[in-house]
Each structure stands twice: as C-alpha cells, then as structure tokens.
C-alpha cells in the first residue's frame, strides 16, 4: 500500500503538471495562430487557457501538500481554495476544493475518507465559493489592515467545514439508539479538540497569508483584472 501511495503521489503531480504544460503549449502554438484574426477572441481564449493551466498547477500543489506528512490538522487546501475563489471566482475556488478533496479521499495518508467523502467535498466547495463572494465584497487592492477579515473568515469557514464533515459522521453513527441530532452533537463534541486545532491553524494561515498572496498574484497577473 505504501509503495502504491509513493508511486501515486508523483504520478498524480506529474499528470497535473503535464496537463498544465499541454495547456500552455496549446495556447502558444495553436490558439494564437487560429484566433489571431480577432484580437478580442485571442485575448479571451488566452485568459481561459492560462487560468486553466494555473488551476491545474494549484490542484497539483494542493494534492502534494495534502499528501505530505504535516502536523495534525494543518492543511493548506482551505487557504488555497479560498484564495483561488478570490482570484478566479467562486466557481473556480469551489472546483479546486472539490477536485482536491475528491482525490485526497482516496489517497490520504490517514486512510480513505469513506462515507464522509461527499461531505468533505461539500465543505471545501463552500470554502472555495466563499473566496469568490469575499472578493466581490472587497473593492480594489487589499491592505494589510484587512488581514483581520480573512482571519475571521478562516476561522468561521473552517468551523463550517468541520460541522459539515461531522454531519457525515453523524449519518454514519445514527441508528436505533441515537437519533440524528443526538449523533450530530456527539460527533461535534467528540471532535471538538481536533476542530479547535484546525480552526486555530487556519485562522493563522488565512490571517497571515491571504492578503499578501492575493496582492502578489494580482500584481503578477495584472492582466487578469483588466480583462
């Protein structure tokens, strides 16, 4: 199993990276030639292709980070889904979160996600979509003074994610003895310590990284905002 995982991690990253390179190649060779007759079309297609390439790289990055050993409850998928949602819109953020959680559900070093996999996907979709909504609330460049907002959002969204995944656990626990609300409370109470750690890590990450990262990407890809 370990050997299988060891092989799968680089293979997954390789496939994602290959897809990115192919997308960039396609943009360089094909689309620029075919669509050059209409500058507007060229620009639009370029944006889509570069966005897709960037998203593939981000997915590969998230998966790589998900699969490496790390301190308990520290994960970067929430942050990257949220930031992607901010930069590329809710749909892309949600898509990134869903695809990463789907693959992670089978390859996680902590074992397969099993019945809570759909809930993990829904939880991460919410985080990614929230990034897009937050972007619409924020006008212009984010200042470091705004870091408190992502910090609060990081804590809130992580808690929402944990509640959603605990709903999955509660569905698994409920039965003739425990009703669904009782099972949900039991799952939430039993999992509160990992949840607090998860919320703490993500608050720090969202607070410290979101604003500088979004501003840096905006600066590097200034064309994205002009489109």
């Amino acid at each position: 199993m370990r050997l299988f995982l060891r092989l799968l991690v680089p293979l997954t990253s390789f496939l994602h990276c290959s897809y990115s390179y192919l997308s960039v190649f396609k943009w360089l060779v094909c689309e620029r030639l075919i669509w050059m007759d209409n500058p507007s079309n060229t620009w639009r297609r370029t944006m889509q292709t570069v966005k897709l390439a960037l998203l593939s790289v981000l997915t590969a990055l998230c998966l790589g980070l998900q699969l490496v050993p790390r301190p308990m409850n520290l994960e970067f998928t929430s942050l990257l889904s949220f930031v992607t949602g901010m930069l590329f819109g809710s749909l892309f953020g949600a898509g990134l979160g869903a695809s990463v959680m789907f693959i992670n559900g089978f390859l996680s070093p902590y074992g397969p996600a099993g019945s809570i996999l759909p809930f993990q996907i829904v939880g991460m979709v919410i985080v990614g979509a929230a990034g897009g909504i937050y972007r619409r609330m924020s006008v212009g460049k984010l200042s470091l003074g705004n870091a408190l907002e992502p910090l609060v959002l990081g804590a809130f969204l992580t808690f929402v994610y944990d509640v959603v995944t605990n709903v999955g656990t509660a569905l698994f626990l409920q039965g003739p003895v425990l009703s669904f609300p009782q099972a949900l409370v039991a799952a939430l109470v039993a999992g509160v310590i990992p949840s607090i750690m998860h919320v703490a890590w993500n608050s720090i990450l969202f607070g410290a990284v979101t604003v500088p990262l979004v501003n840096a990407v905006q600066k590097a890809f200034v064309w994205r905002w002009q489109a």
Binding site: V189, V192, I193, S195
Partner: peptide, 8 residues
C-alpha cells in the same frame, strides 16, 4: 467552539 469544548 467554546460551548462544544465545555461539553467535551
């Protein structure tokens, strides 16, 4: 979170 921690 604080309420859940108290219950725990």
């Amino acid at each position: 979170l604080a309420s859940l921690a108290v219950l725990y």
